[in-house]
Simulated scan of single mutants.
Amino acid sequence: MRSCGPSLIKYVLFAFNVLFAISGLGILIAGAVVLADVNEFNHFVEGRVLAPPIVLIVTGLIIFLIASLGCFGAIKESPTLLITFAVLLAVIFIVELAVGIAASVFKKDLEGMVKNSLQESIKRSNSEDTMAWDNIQQKLMCCGVDSPADWRTLSANKTLPGSCCQPQYIDSTVGHCLESPALGKDKYFQVGCVGKLKDRIEKNAIILIGVGIGIAFIQILGIVLACYLANSIRQERAK
Rank of each mutant, 00 (worst) to 15 (best):
residue 112 G to Q: 13
residue 96 E to F: 01
residue 167 P to Q: 07
residue 105 V to A: 12
residue 160 L to C: 01
residue 183 L to E: 13
residue 171 D to E: 12
residue 93 F to C: 05
residue 134 D to M: 04
residue 114 V to W: 06
residue 93 F to T: 05
residue 176 H to P: 01
residue 120 E to F: 07
residue 128 E to T: 12
residue 137 Q to D: 00
residue 132 A to M: 02
residue 143 C to A: 05
residue 87 V to H: 12
residue 127 S to R: 15
residue 180 S to E: 09
residue 153 T to L: 08
residue 87 V to P: 03
residue 170 I to P: 10
residue 119 Q to Y: 05
residue 137 Q to K: 02
residue 105 V to H: 14
residue 179 E to N: 08
residue 114 V to T: 02
residue 109 D to K: 11
residue 161 P to E: 07
residue 182 A to S: 12
residue 101 I to L: 11
residue 165 C to V: 02
residue 140 L to I: 02
residue 143 C to F: 04
residue 129 D to Q: 04
residue 135 N to D: 12
residue 143 C to N: 01
residue 85 F to Y: 14
residue 160 L to R: 00
residue 173 T to H: 12
residue 87 V to F: 11
residue 159 T to G: 06
residue 151 W to L: 07
residue 85 F to G: 01
residue 165 C to F: 00
residue 187 K to R: 10
residue 89 L to M: 13
residue 90 A to F: 14
residue 136 I to H: 00
residue 99 V to Q: 00
residue 87 V to A: 09
residue 103 A to S: 13
residue 123 K to C: 06
residue 175 G to S: 08
residue 94 I to G: 09
residue 115 K to Q: 15
residue 93 F to N: 01
residue 116 N to E: 13
residue 156 A to C: 06
residue 130 T to I: 14
residue 178 L to F: 09
residue 93 F to Q: 04
residue 141 M to E: 11
residue 162 G to Y: 02
residue 160 L to F: 03
residue 95 V to N: 04
residue 139 K to D: 09
residue 188 Y to F: 14
residue 138 Q to S: 11
residue 104 S to K: 14
residue 176 H to R: 05
residue 118 L to K: 01
residue 187 K to P: 13
residue 173 T to N: 09
residue 132 A to R: 01
residue 126 N to D: 12
residue 151 W to Y: 15
residue 168 Q to S: 15
residue 102 A to I: 13
residue 134 D to C: 06
residue 101 I to Q: 13
residue 189 F to W: 15
residue 178 L to E: 15
residue 165 C to W: 00
residue 126 N to E: 02
residue 172 S to G: 08
residue 101 I to M: 14
residue 185 K to L: 11
residue 170 I to H: 01
residue 135 N to M: 15
residue 143 C to W: 04
residue 185 K to P: 10
residue 171 D to H: 13
residue 136 I to R: 00
residue 153 T to K: 09
residue 144 G to D: 09
residue 106 F to P: 00
residue 172 S to W: 06
residue 89 L to P: 00
residue 176 H to V: 04
residue 110 L to S: 04
residue 166 Q to H: 14
residue 85 F to R: 01
residue 127 S to N: 14
residue 161 P to F: 08
residue 111 E to A: 11
residue 129 D to I: 03
residue 99 V to G: 00
residue 139 K to H: 10
residue 112 G to P: 00
residue 168 Q to A: 10
residue 120 E to C: 03
residue 157 N to K: 15
residue 188 Y to S: 04
residue 85 F to M: 02
residue 142 C to K: 07
residue 89 L to N: 10
residue 160 L to A: 11
residue 137 Q to A: 01
residue 86 A to L: 06
